[in-house]
Amino acid sequence: MMFMNKESDPILCRTFPTFLDGAALIWFSNLPEGSISNFDELANQFIKHFAASKIYVHNSDYLSTIKQGPNESLKDYMTRFAEATNEIPNVNLEVHLHALKSGLRSGKFQESIVIAKPKTLAEFREKATTQIEIEEF
């Protein structure tokens, strides 16, 4: 909508803050009076100031960095891993499974996975669910 009125800088500059809230509105309110001369300058300043806030989308390589903590339950690890996976578009299921197994801490469950060699996420989740039930009991 803002760019449809491209010809009218004053309207754009006055309308812009009505779409802001939180930190963006505070930033805008703290701009020195007369420091912006046109909408393109306002837009560029806004982008420069909030560029670090850009949402970063991980790729499937990120999954290999997720490791089960020394005191982290399997349930918490699986939940944290699932949340990370949900942020990655089009995750390859084989990469997903490999990273999930590789992130397990050493112990009886990890050893059982090495022996059982689940070939699908469903197989892995079935074994994990059984282990989680044991841990919670």
Rank of each mutant, 00 (worst) to 15 (best):
E94V: 06
K48N: 15
L20V: 07
N30E: 10
L31E: 09
I88R: 01
S8A: 01
N71H: 15
W27F: 11
C13S: 03
I55L: 07
V57K: 06
T79R: 12
E72M: 12
H58R: 13
A24F: 09
F39G: 00
H49I: 06
E87Y: 04
Q110G: 03
S35M: 10
K75M: 08
C13Q: 14
T15I: 11
E111W: 08
L31P: 11
I11Q: 13
P10F: 07
C13V: 09
K101Q: 15
N86K: 13
N86A: 13
N86W: 05
I115L: 08
V57T: 15
L63E: 01
I115H: 04
L42F: 02
Q45C: 13
A51Y: 06
K6W: 06
S73R: 10
N44Y: 07
V91Y: 02
W27K: 07
E94M: 05
F50I: 13
E111D: 10
Y62E: 14
T18V: 07
F50N: 15
Q110K: 12
E83C: 01
F109W: 07
S60W: 01
N71D: 15
S64K: 12
A23W: 04
L42I: 06
Q68D: 02
R80K: 14
R14V: 03
Q68F: 07
H96N: 08
E41P: 02
K67A: 07
E41S: 08
G103I: 09
S8H: 09
A24T: 13
V95L: 12
D40P: 04
G103L: 01
L12P: 03
S112C: 04
A82P: 02
N30F: 01
I36L: 08
I55P: 01
K67M: 13
G22E: 13
D76Q: 12
D61G: 08
K117W: 01
D61H: 06
K75Y: 14
H49D: 04
N5W: 03
K117Q: 15
A99E: 02
D40G: 09
E94P: 00
S37C: 11
M4H: 04
F46S: 08
G22T: 05
F109T: 13
H49N: 13
Y56F: 11
S53K: 03
P17R: 05
E87G: 08
W27S: 12
A99T: 01
V114W: 00
Y56C: 04
L42V: 02
P32G: 10
S29V: 00
K101L: 07
H96R: 11
A52Y: 07
I47W: 00
N5M: 08
